[in-house]
Amino acid sequence: MLNLVSPRAKIEPPARTYRNDRGRIEIDNVGIVFDGDRGVHTAVENTSITIEPGQFVCILGPSGCGKSTLLNAVAGYVPPTTGQIRVDGEPVKAPGPDRGMVFQQYSLFPWMTVRENVAFGPRISGRGEPTPEAIADTFIEMVGLTRFAKRYPRELSGGMQQRVGIARALANYPRVLLMDEPFGALDSQTRAMMSENLLKIWAEFGITVLFVTHDIDEAVFLGDRVLVMSASPGRIIADIKIDLPRPRDGDLTVDEGFIRYKRLFHAQIRQESLKAFEQQNR
C-alpha cells in the first residue's frame, strides 16, 4: 500500500482518510450588508445555522436572495458584517484549502491539463507523499475521467469540466465541500447524471456538503436537509429534513414522497420568487 514509486501508483482510497467527526459548520448570527455605490444593501439578514459533520445541506431560494452570498461567506470571500462563521470551531477569516469550493461557472485553469488542475491544491499544500499527481489520479478516477487526464479543459464538455472541478476541490481533503449552483449551466440530462454521481462520491466520503441551488428537484433529491431562503434580504424561512431513503437514484424523482416534498417547497419558493420579481421591477 505504501509503494508510491510511480506517480500512477494506487494510494489509499480517499474515504478512509476521512473522519466523520470533521466538518461542522456553524453560522452564528451572521448578517451581510453591502455598502456600495448604489446605497446600502442587506444581502443576508441575521442567520444562524449549524450543520453537522457529514450532512448534505441544500440552501434553496429564488435568484438574488443572498444564498450565494452566504455560501461565499462560509468560503471566506465575503466577510460577514455581523456575527461569525466557524468550521470545526475555527473562525473563517479568508478562503482556505479546508473548504473546497465548486463554482457555477467553469473555473478550471485553461492552461493546465485535467491532471494538473486536480494536482494544483496538493502541490500547493506541499505534501511529499503521496505525490500530488498520485492524489490527482485517484480523484480523477473517482469522477470517471481517467482517460481525459492529459486533456485541456476546453477539450471537455461542460459536465466533464464540473466533474474535474469537484475532483479538484476534493483533492485537498477539505473538511467541507461548498457548491454554488454547480450544475446550473448544464442540460437537464447531464444534470441528473451529475447529481447521482455527486451522491455516490458523497456517500464514499461522508464529507459535509453545503449546496446552493434554486432548483427544487435538485435540493430534494440531494439533501438531508433543505434550508429555504426568503427573497432579499435573505433569511432562512424553513429548515426541513428530507426523509427519503438512500442511496437515491433517478427513480426517486417520480416517487410519492419526493413529490410531496416538492409540493411543499413549490408553494414557498413561488411566493418568494414573486416577491423577488416585484423587488426587481420596483
Binding site: 478562503p95 484549502p97 473555473s107 485553469f109 494544483f120 476541490a169
Partner: peptide, 20 residues
C-alpha cells in the same frame, strides 16, 4: 473566478500571481 478558485485551493498571493 480563477483567482477565487486558486484562493480556495490554498494558493498564496505570490502563487496566485505566478500560477494564475
Amino acid at each position: 473566478v480563477l483567482v477565487r478558485a486558486a484562493q480556495s485551493l490554498g494558493a498564496s498571493e505570490r502563487q496566485i500571481f505566478r500560477k494564475v
